[in-house]
Design a binder for these strands. Sequence first.
DNA 1: TCAAAAATACTCCTTAAGGAGTATTGCTCC
DNA 2: GGAGCAATACTCCTTAAGGAGTATTTTTGA
Lengths: 215, 215
Amino acid sequence: MWDNSRNIRVIIVDDHPLVIEGIKNVIQGNDGLELVGQFGSAKALSDCLGMIEVDLVLLDITLPDGNGISICKELKKSYPDLVIIALSNLSERSIIKQMLQSGASGYLLKTADPCDILNCMQDALNGKITLSSELKENFDMAVLSEPEEIPELTIREKQILQLLAAGKTSAEIAADLFISPLTVKTHRATLLHKFETGNILTAVNKARESGIIPR
Amino acid sequence: MWDNSRNIRVIIVDDHPLVIEGIKNVIQGNDGLELVGQFGSAKALSDCLGMIEVDLVLLDITLPDGNGISICKELKKSYPDLVIIALSNLSERSIIKQMLQSGASGYLLKTADPCDILNCMQDALNGKITLSSELKENFDMAVLSEPEEIPELTIREKQILQLLAAGKTSAEIAADLFISPLTVKTHRATLLHKFETGNILTAVNKARESGIIPR
DNA sequence: TCAAAAATACTCCTTAAGGAGTATTGCTCC
DNA sequence: GGAGCAATACTCCTTAAGGAGTATTTTTGA
C-alpha cells in the first residue's frame, strides 16, 4: 500500500486527546506508517518542527492558539514538501477552500472512518488533493479550487463587525468606542459593501463562514 | 478505584469514529471498566438498548439524527438508573444547563484528557454531577443548576426565525411563505418579546446558543 | 517625506425594523 | 362544544438601518 522503502512519518496536531488516541490506533495498526509526534497546540508543533523529520501532518484547524489556515500557510512556507491534511469538524465551503488554497493536500472531517482517513493520506502522499468521502459527495473539486473571495477588513471594521454580531446597535457601539454614531454608520456601510449585501445579519453570517469572526 | 464487585459496563455514542477509537483506548486501559457497545447514531443506540446491560453512557450531543438533550431525556425516562455523561465540543452555558437538567450526570468537553474523563466517570457513578476540568474553571455549578429559561416557540415562529437568521427581510419572508408582510411583522415582534430583546440578531444569537435553530 | 490607506464625521433622503396595540379566523384538545 | 392557542392581518407612530455621497484628520509604509 505505501512506499516500501521506509516508513511514512506522521504527526498529529489536535487539541482533543481523544482524537489523538483515535489517530494513534489508526496509524499503529498500519505497517508503513509511523507516528513520530503528537501536539495539542500550534505552539507545541512549531517548537518541535525542524527537530524531527516528518512526511505528513494531520492538522486540526481549530486549535486554541491559532487558526489552521494561517498555520498551514506558514508550515508550507517553511517546509514546502511537507504534506498537510486538515482535520476538522467544520464543513463550510469557504473554510475548505481556504485550507486547500493555503497548501493543504486534503481535508478530512472528523466523522471520517479510519479507512477513509488512510485512503486520503495515501492519495495526499501521491500528490493528489483529497477530501473525506462525505465531503466528496457534497462538494465539487473544481469549485473548491477556485480562489475564495474574502473581503479584506481593517482592524476597526473587524472590531465593529464583532460588536454588530453581538447584537449591538450603532449607538451602543459608538458609546463603547467613544466615537460618533455617524462614524459607526460609515464603517457599517463599508462592511455592507465589502460583503456585497444589504443587511448586517448576512454580513455576519458570511464573516462567520469564512472565519473572519468567531462563532 | 471502581466498585470491585463487577465491571462497570460502558457504552459510547458518537458519530466520530476517531473519538470512539480514543474512548476505546481510555476504557480498555482501565481495570473495572468494560466497553459493551459503540454506536454512531441515536437510532443505533435505541435499537440496541434494552438488549444489553449498561451502567453508563457517554453521549455525544451532536448526532446526525437527533439532539442530545431530547435523547438524554428519553433515555432517562426509560432507564432512570442509567448514568449519562454528555460528550461534546460545545461549551455554551445554555447547552450544558439543558443537558444537566435533562438528567445527565456530567458534561465532558472533547478537549478533556483521558484522566479527566475517567475522573468524571467515577464521580458520576458515585452520584455526583461533574464537569470536565476546563468547564469547572469557567462555570459555577450553582448557576448551571438553575433552570434555563428557554422561550417556547410555535413552529411558525421557528420557521420565521430561521429565515430571519439567514438574513432575509420581512418582505422576502412574506413572499416566501405567501403571507402578508404585516403578519411577518407580528411574528417578528413576538420573537423579540420571547427572547426579551430589541433586535433580531440578538434573538438569533440566543436561539443558536440554546439549540433552537442550527448554527 | 509624501502619497495612500484608514479612521473620523458629516448631509440628505428612503426604507426597514421596532413598539404597542386590536381583531378575526382557524385549529385542537379536553 | 367552547376555551385557548396559533396564525393571520391590520393601524399608528418612533427609531434604526441602509444608500449615496463628501470631507477632514490621522496613521503608516515605501
